[in-house]
Design a protein around this nucleic acid. Structure first.
Lengths: 138, 138
DNA sequence: ATCGACCTTACCACAATGGCAAGGTCAAGG
DNA sequence: CCTTGACCTTGCCATTGTGGTAAGGTCGAT
């Protein structure tokens, strides 16, 4: 199949498929006489794997590792698990960070009347380096 | 004060201060005879405001709006609040997305023995388009 | 022959930050 | 007076993952 069909079937844009090839995430595909890329069902399988991995938030670099583990029949599942656990930690850290932001901002927003007056606890909070204040209230 | 001192005092790198000036987030600073940037306490105040805003996750574009509202004595606090609420929603959406990823991945990781054997539920999960449980992008 | 839908490569852009290089400046100490 | 080191200047490149656009080739159907 052509790249457009592969894109539709895998959910990865044609643009990105070319890009993944360019950075060596996937192998160069076969080409037709005219130079069109041709994809097999096996290639599609790989693209779907990448798509799944991306939707779990793995970076392309991590996916490179996952792919090689996936294709290595002799791999130890402990290696895969280590990669997954590391990514879970990255996700947790990010969630913690965003939650802290959210809570601080929510506190400020709750105090803000949100009316026509100029007085605004949100701006005051930003002014007073609220970023350093820990979210311990309420 | 010079840019280095302003950087230390505000917690924003000199590099970024120049960048913020370049994109028009802050005004061009005064210069010494030799061309060195010179910052006043007032400039520092602005930089700290930006620093706080960044640490709450506002984009530079949003900060541009916050800054103009901050400097507008006649602003209505409702405008500021709207911006804050919008950002809270962005944060919530992101947190939801990341949590979904985390939970899916955690489930796979829990099933994985993580030993020397090749059998690996994580890779199997990725292979079976586990990504279908929608984790949407931003 | 021509049109539209597809493909190709090769650039540019984003957001926010870091890094490096080549050069100017300034203050202190010889 | 000159050197040294710490600072400043501009400018360009890299990152991450994705989208866009342009100029051109190809293919199938009319």
């Amino acid at each position: 199949m052509n790249i457009g069909e592969a894109a539709k079937a895998s959910g990865i844009s044609a643009k990105m498929i070319r890009h993944y090839e360019g950075i060596g995430l996937i192998e160069e595909s076969r080409r037709s006489a005219a130079g069109y890329r041709i994809y097999s069902n096996n290639d599609l399988h790989t693209l779907s794997f990448i798509k799944s991995s991306r939707s779990l938030g793995f970076s392309l670099d991590q996916i490179k590792q996952l792919l090689s583990q996936w294709q290595d029949r002799g791999r130890a599942s402990s290696d895969v698990k280590a990669l997954a656990l590391q990514h879970i930690k990255e996700l947790d850290d990010k969630i913690t960070e965003l939650s802290a932001m959210r809570n601080l901002l929510q506190n400020l927003a709750t105090e803000c009347h949100g009316d026509n007056r100029a007085e605004c606890p949100i701006l005051q909070g930003l002014e007073q380096q609220c970023g350093e204040a820990k979210a311990k209230k309420t």
